[in-house]
Design a protein around this nucleic acid. Sequence first.
DNA 1: TGTAATAGTTATAATTTTGTAACCATTATA
DNA 2: TATAATGGTTACAAAATTATAACTATTACA
Lengths: 147, 147
Amino acid sequence: MDKLKIDQIAENIISVYPLLYKTISRPIKHQSITPGGMFVLGSLKRNGVQSMSDIGKCLAMPKPHVTVIVDKLIEEGYVERLNDPNDRRIINISITGKGIEVFHEIKKALAENMKIKLLNLTEEEHDILAVATQQVKDILTTILSKE
Amino acid sequence: MDKLKIDQIAENIISVYPLLYKTISRPIKHQSITPGGMFVLGSLKRNGVQSMSDIGKCLAMPKPHVTVIVDKLIEEGYVERLNDPNDRRIINISITGKGIEVFHEIKKALAENMKIKLLNLTEEEHDILAVATQQVKDILTTILSKE
DNA sequence: TGTAATAGTTATAATTTTGTAACCATTATA
DNA sequence: TATAATGGTTACAAAATTATAACTATTACA
């Protein structure tokens, strides 16, 4: 286990977060959705139907918080509750057409917002950023979905 | 401008954001510092002395919030106020030795926390993550340092 | 069957973040 | 000099996140 490399990863993550935050939080503003709601929609969009616990695990979010967020999303018609036929304790959450729509809208606003800034980059940097963000996403997802 | 690639970057960023936040916020808990305080320390550590407005701009944080956070950081002795000799309206914030210390402590806790999870990864994945986070950091920093 | 474990909700409180408006001191400018 | 603009603080309210504990319903298992 290379200690130096882990320190570097930690350092990078600490500095990247506020930067990401800056690029992401603005487009979400003015929408009828909170950041938490957006994350839940994103998780459902990526992973398909998920139980309440699954969502909490995926986003490292406490269960009561998931309940609150899902309640609000249902109120807006962005997701719906489904009973699990095999285990009646489980409640599966499914994103609706309207939910997918609003998710794309926000993603479009985010892309639009980024496009202005990305204009200053070279084609090569675009490629690097596309691959690098994908890799970070994949690996962190793997790490955090365990247990 | 490759629209598809930008969409992919936007998509990745939306999914990475909550994951990063969770990896950061957990180790910070139980410390005498909030995520916001951590971001301010990080900004000062990377950019050196900054005015209140600079901090707000760098972190896309409203000014009153910066004041509140800096007040708390000063209370703990992690940063200090410096008067600007050229413009008496400006107050520059400088990280102290104690601030650097606590920043490193938390980074160590973050690294420690990640180490456990990183154990499940291959050496190759470690390399990928180290490089990828570095690239994301560098490129986003470039983009956002422009105005 | 009886007990423990799991899935989810409810309620409540504390903390953090965000937003707004008013305000003072200082600087820039017409 | 009078006025506007800038940097920062204060005060307040609202929203979002986090944490905890108690609770119901269902399932697993000894």
